[in-house]
Amino acid sequence: MNTKDFPQLDSIEKIEQGFESFGYICSTQIATAVFLAFHLRKPILVEGPPGVGKTELAKTTSELLSLPLIRLQCYEGLDEAKALYEWKYGKQLLYTQVLKEKLGDLLQGAQGLAESVERLHQFGDIFYSPDFLEPRPLLKAMQQDKGAVLLIDEVDKSDYEFESLLLELLSDYQISIPEIGTVKAKTTPMVFLTSNNTRDLSDALKRRCLHLYIPFPTLELEERIIRSRVPDIDEVLRSQLVQFVHSLRQLDLKKNPAISETIDWARSLLLLHANKLDEDLIRTTLNVLLKFEDDISATEPELRSLISEATAQ
């Protein structure tokens, strides 16, 4: 990826503005990470609680750069056949069947077995050539002419073995295929890895990446996000609901409401034509914010004080 081709990434401020124009409001920290990743050609490992916009960051970057987004969703048991490449077995088989008849013509006049094998050798490994290679996401990202944004989502869900598989890609932007050799990236892709911290990633992987931790946003930032995502909502209600969610996060919950849930909630309140927070309204819509029955019942006794806190502001 040539630095000059992407004036959108010239400075940290430009990135912030660019993201904003696509509706992604980010902190300076996030913009700095993208800026550095681009200029140092390093992958970014994004960690943070679910729903703070880790995946969204990669998507928006691809929109900002107008590059294709290539996504690899990780899960337990993901292996190289699904992540890197696979041979097109069917095609190989079909071709051998078709070519069987041609074989007679080819070997005509050959004296003995040795000479026949000799002749066959001249054709090289046609069946293990790039034509028969089925590229999977990682290889596909290497093959893009103009570069790409590669998103390796929830890398913590994959196995340890898979992590080691990624190391070559992350440090040298190349992939080794035993039958062909090393495939280097045509243009260095922007790589995002996301993790929900369900387990610690290996040091080797972390070492190769810039590490970005996205926490829950500050009050002010979250309000800006809601303003950008749900523009029609009343201003007073917006600041109230953001304040409410923030105090909700102070409670000891199984799963804290994330930005995506705040957005959903704002949308539902808009749909219900609410113009201020009251207890009934919250009680009926709380399930948009909280996804566990335990959390909901733990919150209900606190509701009144939470509301007064939110509306006092």
Binding site: A33, L210, H211
Partner: peptide, 9 residues
Amino acid sequence: DGLSMALAK
């Protein structure tokens, strides 16, 4: 911000 990305993980 920049240094923390490279040094603290």
